[in-house]
Design a protein around this nucleic acid. Structure first.
Lengths: 183, 183
DNA sequence: TCGTAGTTTCAGAAATTACTGAAAATTCGG
DNA sequence: CCGAATTTTCAGTAATTTCTGAAACTACGA
Protein backbone atom coordinates (compact mmCIF):
# COMPACT_ATOMS: atom_id res chain seq x y z
CA UNK A 1 0.00 0.00 0.00
CA UNK A 2 1.76 3.09 -1.26
CA UNK A 3 0.77 6.21 0.57
CA UNK A 4 -0.87 8.99 -1.42
CA UNK A 5 1.22 12.17 -1.40
CA UNK A 6 -1.18 13.96 0.87
CA UNK A 7 -1.10 11.18 3.42
CA UNK A 8 2.68 11.42 3.26
CA UNK A 9 2.65 14.97 4.47
CA UNK A 10 0.30 14.17 7.28
CA UNK A 11 2.36 11.18 8.33
CA UNK A 12 5.59 13.12 8.28
CA UNK A 13 4.20 15.85 10.43
CA UNK A 14 2.89 13.37 12.97
CA UNK A 15 6.24 11.69 13.02
CA UNK A 16 7.81 14.98 14.11
CA UNK A 17 5.12 15.55 16.66
CA UNK A 18 5.30 12.03 17.99
CA UNK A 19 8.97 12.60 18.64
CA UNK A 20 8.15 15.53 20.90
CA UNK A 21 5.84 13.42 22.99
CA UNK A 22 7.35 10.38 24.63
CA UNK A 23 7.10 8.26 21.47
CA UNK A 24 9.63 8.30 18.64
CA UNK A 25 9.25 9.32 15.04
CA UNK A 26 8.32 5.93 13.69
CA UNK A 27 5.70 5.40 16.35
CA UNK A 28 4.13 8.72 15.47
CA UNK A 29 4.11 7.78 11.82
CA UNK A 30 2.56 4.41 12.44
CA UNK A 31 -0.17 6.12 14.37
CA UNK A 32 -0.76 8.64 11.60
CA UNK A 33 -1.12 5.89 9.01
CA UNK A 34 -3.64 4.08 11.14
CA UNK A 35 -5.48 7.28 11.83
CA UNK A 36 -6.11 7.98 8.15
CA UNK A 37 -6.73 4.40 7.08
CA UNK A 38 -10.23 3.44 6.01
CA UNK A 39 -10.05 0.11 7.75
CA UNK A 40 -7.76 -1.68 10.18
CA UNK A 41 -4.31 -2.48 8.80
CA UNK A 42 -1.99 -5.36 9.40
CA UNK A 43 1.67 -4.89 10.24
CA UNK A 44 2.90 -5.58 6.74
CA UNK A 45 0.71 -2.91 5.26
CA UNK A 46 2.32 -0.44 7.63
CA UNK A 47 5.74 -1.71 6.62
CA UNK A 48 5.12 -0.94 2.95
CA UNK A 49 3.42 2.35 3.74
CA UNK A 50 6.37 3.62 5.76
CA UNK A 51 9.28 1.67 4.34
CA UNK A 52 10.72 0.67 7.70
CA UNK A 53 11.61 -2.77 8.92
CA UNK A 54 9.06 -5.26 10.03
CA UNK A 55 10.57 -5.46 13.50
CA UNK A 56 10.47 -1.73 13.89
CA UNK A 57 6.75 -1.76 13.17
CA UNK A 58 6.28 -4.57 15.63
CA UNK A 59 7.99 -2.59 18.36
CA UNK A 60 6.10 0.56 17.44
CA UNK A 61 2.79 -1.20 17.65
CA UNK A 62 3.70 -2.61 21.01
CA UNK A 63 4.52 0.89 22.19
CA UNK A 64 1.20 2.21 20.91
CA UNK A 65 -0.58 -0.60 22.67
CA UNK A 66 1.13 0.33 25.91
CA UNK A 67 -0.27 3.82 25.45
CA UNK A 68 -3.65 2.25 24.73
CA UNK A 69 -3.80 4.24 21.55
CA UNK A 70 -4.51 1.43 19.12
CA UNK A 71 -7.00 -1.38 18.96
CA UNK A 72 -6.23 -4.87 17.90
CA UNK A 73 -8.73 -6.97 16.03
CA UNK A 74 -8.86 -10.27 14.22
CA UNK A 75 -10.62 -11.24 11.05
CA UNK A 76 -12.11 -14.70 10.95
CA UNK A 77 -10.00 -17.06 8.89
CA UNK A 78 -7.01 -14.73 8.97
CA UNK A 79 -4.20 -15.22 11.35
CA UNK A 80 -2.86 -11.69 11.18
CA UNK A 81 -3.38 -8.93 13.74
CA UNK A 82 -5.17 -5.84 12.46
CA UNK A 83 -4.78 -2.48 14.09
CA UNK A 84 -6.91 0.63 14.13
CA UNK A 85 -7.44 3.87 16.01
CA UNK A 86 -10.76 4.69 17.66
CA UNK A 87 -13.26 6.35 15.32
CA UNK A 88 -14.02 8.99 17.86
CA UNK A 89 -11.26 11.57 17.86
CA UNK A 90 -12.34 12.80 21.24
CA UNK A 91 -11.74 9.39 22.68
CA UNK A 92 -8.22 9.50 21.28
CA UNK A 93 -7.54 12.86 22.87
CA UNK A 94 -8.83 11.66 26.22
CA UNK A 95 -6.64 8.59 26.09
CA UNK A 96 -3.62 10.73 25.40
CA UNK A 97 -4.42 13.06 28.25
CA UNK A 98 -4.98 10.16 30.59
CA UNK A 99 -1.73 8.54 29.63
CA UNK A 100 0.30 11.66 29.99
CA UNK A 101 -1.24 12.39 33.33
CA UNK A 102 -0.36 8.97 34.64
CA UNK A 103 3.15 9.09 33.21
CA UNK A 104 4.07 12.60 34.20
CA UNK A 105 1.74 14.24 36.63
CA UNK A 106 1.05 11.35 38.97
CA UNK A 107 4.69 10.41 39.51
CA UNK A 108 5.52 14.04 40.14
CA UNK A 109 2.84 14.28 42.76
CA UNK A 110 4.18 11.12 44.36
CA UNK A 111 7.68 12.54 44.52
CA UNK A 112 6.47 15.81 45.97
CA UNK A 113 4.59 14.00 48.70
CA UNK A 114 7.51 11.74 49.45
CA UNK A 115 9.75 14.75 49.87
CA UNK A 116 7.40 16.15 52.45
CA UNK A 117 7.55 12.91 54.42
CA UNK A 118 11.32 12.76 54.17
CA UNK A 119 13.22 12.92 57.44
CA UNK A 120 15.25 15.79 55.99
CA UNK A 121 12.22 17.84 55.24
CA UNK A 122 12.21 19.89 58.42
CA UNK A 123 15.71 21.20 57.85
CA UNK A 124 14.94 22.37 54.33
CA UNK A 125 14.80 26.11 53.86
CA UNK A 126 11.41 27.68 54.36
CA UNK A 127 11.51 28.96 50.85
CA UNK A 128 12.06 25.55 49.31
CA UNK A 129 9.32 24.07 51.49
CA UNK A 130 6.94 26.73 50.38
CA UNK A 131 7.67 26.05 46.72
CA UNK A 132 7.28 22.32 47.13
CA UNK A 133 4.02 22.74 48.94
CA UNK A 134 2.72 25.23 46.45
CA UNK A 135 3.51 22.87 43.60
CA UNK A 136 1.76 20.05 45.42
CA UNK A 137 -1.35 22.15 45.94
CA UNK A 138 -1.47 23.16 42.32
CA UNK A 139 -1.14 19.65 40.99
CA UNK A 140 -3.80 18.45 43.39
CA UNK A 141 -6.12 21.17 42.20
CA UNK A 142 -5.75 20.05 38.62
CA UNK A 143 -6.03 16.40 39.48
CA UNK A 144 -9.29 16.90 41.28
CA UNK A 145 -10.66 18.88 38.37
CA UNK A 146 -9.53 16.23 35.94
CA UNK A 147 -11.25 13.54 37.96
CA UNK A 148 -14.46 15.51 37.80
CA UNK A 149 -14.13 16.06 34.10
CA UNK A 150 -12.89 12.73 32.87
CA UNK A 151 -15.50 11.00 30.84
CA UNK A 152 -17.45 13.99 29.55
CA UNK A 153 -18.30 13.53 25.91
CA UNK A 154 -17.26 15.97 23.24
CA UNK A 155 -20.72 17.37 22.95
CA UNK A 156 -20.93 18.25 26.60
CA UNK A 157 -17.39 19.48 26.56
CA UNK A 158 -18.23 21.96 23.88
CA UNK A 159 -20.93 23.43 26.04
CA UNK A 160 -18.66 23.48 29.08
CA UNK A 161 -15.92 25.29 27.23
CA UNK A 162 -18.35 27.97 26.13
CA UNK A 163 -19.64 28.26 29.65
CA UNK A 164 -16.09 28.59 30.90
CA UNK A 165 -15.30 31.36 28.46
CA UNK A 166 -18.46 33.21 29.35
CA UNK A 167 -17.92 32.74 33.06
CA UNK A 168 -14.42 34.02 32.87
CA UNK A 169 -15.67 37.21 31.30
CA UNK A 170 -18.33 37.62 33.95
CA UNK A 171 -15.92 36.98 36.77
CA UNK A 172 -13.65 39.63 35.40
CA UNK A 173 -16.15 42.25 36.44
CA UNK A 174 -16.54 41.11 40.00
CA UNK A 175 -13.96 43.10 41.84
CA UNK A 176 -12.13 40.81 44.23
CA UNK A 177 -9.29 41.88 46.39
CA UNK A 178 -6.86 39.26 45.16
CA UNK A 179 -7.81 39.14 41.53
CA UNK A 180 -5.51 40.88 39.17
CA UNK A 181 -7.12 43.05 36.56
CA UNK A 182 -8.47 41.24 33.57
CA UNK A 183 -7.09 41.80 30.18
CA UNK B 1 26.90 25.47 46.51
CA UNK B 2 26.39 21.83 47.37
CA UNK B 3 22.80 20.75 47.07
CA UNK B 4 21.04 19.50 50.20
CA UNK B 5 19.97 15.86 49.84
CA UNK B 6 16.33 16.76 49.58
CA UNK B 7 16.98 19.19 46.77
CA UNK B 8 18.89 16.43 45.05
CA UNK B 9 15.83 14.23 44.87
CA UNK B 10 13.71 17.03 43.56
CA UNK B 11 16.30 17.95 40.98
CA UNK B 12 16.72 14.38 39.80
CA UNK B 13 13.02 13.92 39.35
CA UNK B 14 12.74 17.10 37.34
CA UNK B 15 15.61 15.97 35.21
CA UNK B 16 13.64 12.87 34.27
CA UNK B 17 10.53 14.90 33.62
CA UNK B 18 12.37 17.52 31.64
CA UNK B 19 13.55 14.73 29.37
CA UNK B 20 9.95 13.77 28.58
CA UNK B 21 9.16 17.29 27.53
CA UNK B 22 11.17 18.73 24.70
CA UNK B 23 14.09 19.67 26.96
CA UNK B 24 16.83 17.29 28.04
CA UNK B 25 17.77 16.03 31.46
CA UNK B 26 20.26 18.75 32.27
CA UNK B 27 17.89 21.49 31.26
CA UNK B 28 15.25 20.04 33.57
CA UNK B 29 17.74 19.89 36.40
CA UNK B 30 18.89 23.44 35.89
CA UNK B 31 15.32 24.53 36.08
CA UNK B 32 14.71 22.57 39.26
CA UNK B 33 17.71 24.14 40.95
CA UNK B 34 16.52 27.61 40.05
CA UNK B 35 13.02 26.78 41.15
CA UNK B 36 14.10 25.91 44.69
CA UNK B 37 16.76 28.56 45.05
CA UNK B 38 16.13 31.38 47.51
CA UNK B 39 17.60 33.96 45.20
CA UNK B 40 18.78 34.20 41.62
CA UNK B 41 21.85 32.11 40.82
CA UNK B 42 24.73 32.67 38.48
CA UNK B 43 25.87 30.02 36.03
CA UNK B 44 28.80 28.88 38.15
CA UNK B 45 26.58 28.18 41.11
CA UNK B 46 24.54 25.89 38.90
CA UNK B 47 27.72 24.22 37.69
CA UNK B 48 28.75 23.29 41.22
CA UNK B 49 25.22 22.31 42.19
CA UNK B 50 24.88 19.89 39.31
CA UNK B 51 28.45 18.94 38.55
CA UNK B 52 28.18 19.44 34.81
CA UNK B 53 30.37 21.52 32.56
CA UNK B 54 30.15 25.23 32.36
CA UNK B 55 29.31 25.11 28.66
CA UNK B 56 26.50 22.67 29.26
CA UNK B 57 24.94 25.07 31.73
CA UNK B 58 25.34 27.88 29.28
CA UNK B 59 23.50 25.96 26.60
CA UNK B 60 20.85 24.84 29.05
CA UNK B 61 20.17 28.37 30.17
CA UNK B 62 19.89 29.48 26.59
CA UNK B 63 17.33 26.74 26.00
CA UNK B 64 15.36 27.81 29.05
CA UNK B 65 15.43 31.37 27.85
CA UNK B 66 14.04 30.28 24.51
CA UNK B 67 11.16 28.71 26.41
CA UNK B 68 10.84 31.96 28.35
CA UNK B 69 11.01 29.97 31.55
CA UNK B 70 13.78 31.87 33.27
CA UNK B 71 14.46 35.47 34.07
CA UNK B 72 17.78 37.13 33.72
CA UNK B 73 18.87 39.86 36.08
CA UNK B 74 21.98 41.82 36.86
CA UNK B 75 23.38 42.99 40.14
CA UNK B 76 25.02 46.38 40.18
CA UNK B 77 28.78 46.13 40.20
CA UNK B 78 28.70 42.49 39.16
CA UNK B 79 29.18 41.45 35.62
CA UNK B 80 27.64 38.01 35.93
CA UNK B 81 24.17 37.04 34.77
CA UNK B 82 21.81 35.85 37.47
CA UNK B 83 18.88 33.61 36.69
CA UNK B 84 15.63 32.91 38.47
CA UNK B 85 12.19 31.46 37.91
CA UNK B 86 9.04 33.52 38.42
CA UNK B 87 7.80 33.55 42.02
CA UNK B 88 4.32 32.79 40.90
CA UNK B 89 4.00 29.12 40.08
CA UNK B 90 0.88 29.77 38.11
CA UNK B 91 2.79 32.07 35.84
CA UNK B 92 5.27 29.27 35.22
CA UNK B 93 2.52 26.84 34.32
CA UNK B 94 0.94 29.31 31.93
CA UNK B 95 4.26 29.91 30.23
CA UNK B 96 4.73 26.20 29.75
CA UNK B 97 1.27 25.80 28.31
CA UNK B 98 1.76 28.75 26.01
CA UNK B 99 5.09 27.43 24.76
CA UNK B 100 3.83 23.95 24.15
CA UNK B 101 0.81 25.27 22.35
CA UNK B 102 2.93 27.34 20.03
CA UNK B 103 5.44 24.55 19.44
CA UNK B 104 3.01 21.70 18.95
CA UNK B 105 -0.57 22.69 18.50
CA UNK B 106 -0.14 25.70 16.26
CA UNK B 107 2.14 24.01 13.73
CA UNK B 108 -0.22 21.06 13.60
CA UNK B 109 -3.13 23.31 12.85
CA UNK B 110 -1.07 24.96 10.14
CA UNK B 111 -0.29 21.63 8.53
CA UNK B 112 -3.89 20.50 8.68
CA UNK B 113 -5.03 23.67 6.98
CA UNK B 114 -2.34 23.42 4.35
CA UNK B 115 -3.42 19.90 3.54
CA UNK B 116 -6.91 21.12 2.91
CA UNK B 117 -5.63 23.71 0.48
CA UNK B 118 -3.42 21.21 -1.28
CA UNK B 119 -4.20 20.57 -4.93
CA UNK B 120 -4.35 16.86 -4.13
CA UNK B 121 -6.94 17.30 -1.48
CA UNK B 122 -9.96 16.61 -3.66
CA UNK B 123 -8.72 13.17 -4.68
CA UNK B 124 -8.16 12.09 -1.10
CA UNK B 125 -10.53 9.48 0.22
CA UNK B 126 -13.66 10.79 1.89
CA UNK B 127 -12.70 9.03 5.03
CA UNK B 128 -9.29 10.66 5.27
CA UNK B 129 -10.82 14.05 4.50
CA UNK B 130 -13.33 13.57 7.26
CA UNK B 131 -10.63 12.71 9.76
CA UNK B 132 -8.50 15.67 8.77
CA UNK B 133 -11.42 18.02 9.04
CA UNK B 134 -12.52 16.59 12.35
CA UNK B 135 -9.05 17.05 13.77
CA UNK B 136 -8.98 20.62 12.51
CA UNK B 137 -12.29 21.40 14.15
CA UNK B 138 -11.22 19.96 17.44
CA UNK B 139 -7.97 21.88 17.57
CA UNK B 140 -9.76 25.07 16.65
CA UNK B 141 -12.24 24.49 19.45
CA UNK B 142 -9.46 24.21 21.99
CA UNK B 143 -7.55 27.12 20.57
CA UNK B 144 -10.54 29.40 20.84
CA UNK B 145 -11.11 28.31 24.41
CA UNK B 146 -7.49 28.83 25.25
CA UNK B 147 -7.58 32.34 23.82
CA UNK B 148 -10.52 33.13 26.06
CA UNK B 149 -8.85 31.68 29.08
CA UNK B 150 -5.29 32.84 28.72
CA UNK B 151 -4.43 35.35 31.35
CA UNK B 152 -6.83 34.33 34.10
CA UNK B 153 -5.12 34.40 37.45
CA UNK B 154 -4.89 31.40 39.73
CA UNK B 155 -7.54 32.72 42.03
CA UNK B 156 -10.09 33.07 39.29
CA UNK B 157 -9.04 29.80 37.80
CA UNK B 158 -9.80 28.03 41.02
CA UNK B 159 -13.33 29.35 40.92
CA UNK B 160 -13.71 28.47 37.26
CA UNK B 161 -12.56 24.93 37.82
CA UNK B 162 -15.09 24.47 40.58
CA UNK B 163 -17.75 25.96 38.40
CA UNK B 164 -16.78 23.59 35.61
CA UNK B 165 -17.00 20.58 37.86
CA UNK B 166 -20.36 21.64 39.14
CA UNK B 167 -21.66 22.47 35.69
CA UNK B 168 -20.61 19.15 34.36
CA UNK B 169 -22.67 17.44 37.01
CA UNK B 170 -25.68 19.59 36.27
CA UNK B 171 -25.39 19.08 32.54
CA UNK B 172 -25.37 15.36 33.09
CA UNK B 173 -28.99 15.58 34.13
CA UNK B 174 -30.23 17.78 31.35
CA UNK B 175 -31.54 15.48 28.66
CA UNK B 176 -29.79 16.96 25.70
CA UNK B 177 -31.10 17.02 22.20
CA UNK B 178 -29.37 19.11 19.54
CA UNK B 179 -26.66 20.58 21.62
CA UNK B 180 -24.36 23.38 20.75
CA UNK B 181 -22.77 22.20 17.59
CA UNK B 182 -20.43 24.63 15.99
CA UNK B 183 -19.54 22.02 13.43
C1' DT C 1 3.55 -34.09 14.64
C1' DC C 2 4.99 -31.08 10.94
C1' DG C 3 4.99 -27.03 8.08
C1' DT C 4 3.43 -22.53 7.27
C1' DA C 5 2.14 -17.86 8.25
C1' DG C 6 2.56 -14.92 11.25
C1' DT C 7 4.74 -12.17 15.54
C1' DT C 8 8.34 -11.01 18.87
C1' DT C 9 12.92 -10.65 20.64
C1' DC C 10 17.42 -9.12 20.69
C1' DA C 11 22.39 -8.12 19.70
C1' DG C 12 24.71 -5.11 17.17
C1' DA C 13 24.92 -1.17 13.62
C1' DA C 14 23.44 3.35 12.52
C1' DA C 15 21.72 7.64 13.75
C1' DT C 16 20.85 11.06 16.84
C1' DT C 17 21.48 13.79 20.82
C1' DA C 18 24.02 15.48 24.79
C1' DC C 19 28.28 16.95 26.85
C1' DT C 20 32.91 18.66 27.17
C1' DG C 21 37.15 21.49 26.90
C1' DA C 22 39.38 24.79 24.42
C1' DA C 23 39.16 28.73 21.91
C1' DA C 24 36.65 32.89 20.52
C1' DA C 25 33.73 36.52 21.60
C1' DT C 26 31.70 39.98 24.61
C1' DT C 27 31.50 43.36 28.18
C1' DC C 28 33.06 46.70 31.01
C1' DG C 29 36.20 49.32 34.24
C1' DG C 30 40.15 51.87 33.97
C1' DC D 1 42.46 50.65 23.86
C1' DC D 2 43.83 47.03 27.32
C1' DG D 3 42.96 43.32 30.24
C1' DA D 4 40.21 40.77 33.40
C1' DA D 5 35.86 38.52 34.08
C1' DT D 6 32.43 36.31 32.07
C1' DT D 7 29.65 34.05 28.42
C1' DT D 8 29.17 31.67 24.02
C1' DT D 9 30.45 28.76 20.29
C1' DC D 10 31.93 24.69 18.28
C1' DA D 11 34.39 20.47 16.86
C1' DG D 12 35.00 16.22 18.63
C1' DT D 13 33.62 12.57 21.75
C1' DA D 14 30.50 10.12 24.71
C1' DA D 15 26.07 8.43 25.65
C1' DT D 16 21.66 7.27 24.31
C1' DT D 17 18.16 5.99 21.29
C1' DT D 18 16.41 3.94 17.24
C1' DC D 19 16.46 0.61 13.69
C1' DT D 20 17.57 -3.68 11.49
C1' DG D 21 18.10 -8.60 10.15
C1' DA D 22 18.34 -12.96 11.84
C1' DA D 23 16.75 -16.15 14.95
C1' DA D 24 13.30 -17.64 18.21
C1' DC D 25 8.79 -18.13 19.16
C1' DT D 26 3.51 -19.01 18.61
C1' DA D 27 -0.64 -20.68 16.78
C1' DC D 28 -2.95 -23.27 13.77
C1' DG D 29 -4.50 -26.54 10.00
C1' DA D 30 -3.55 -30.86 7.86
Amino acid sequence: MELPALHQKFVIHFGEMGARWGMNRTVGQIYAVLFLAEEPLCADEIVTALGVSRSNVSMGLKELQSWQLVRLEHHPGDRRDFFSTPDDLWEIVMTLVEQRKSREVDPTLTVLRELQLDSDYHNTSDHAKERIEEATRMIELFSRWYEDMRGVDIDKLERLLKLGSAAQKVLSFKPRKTSAQAK
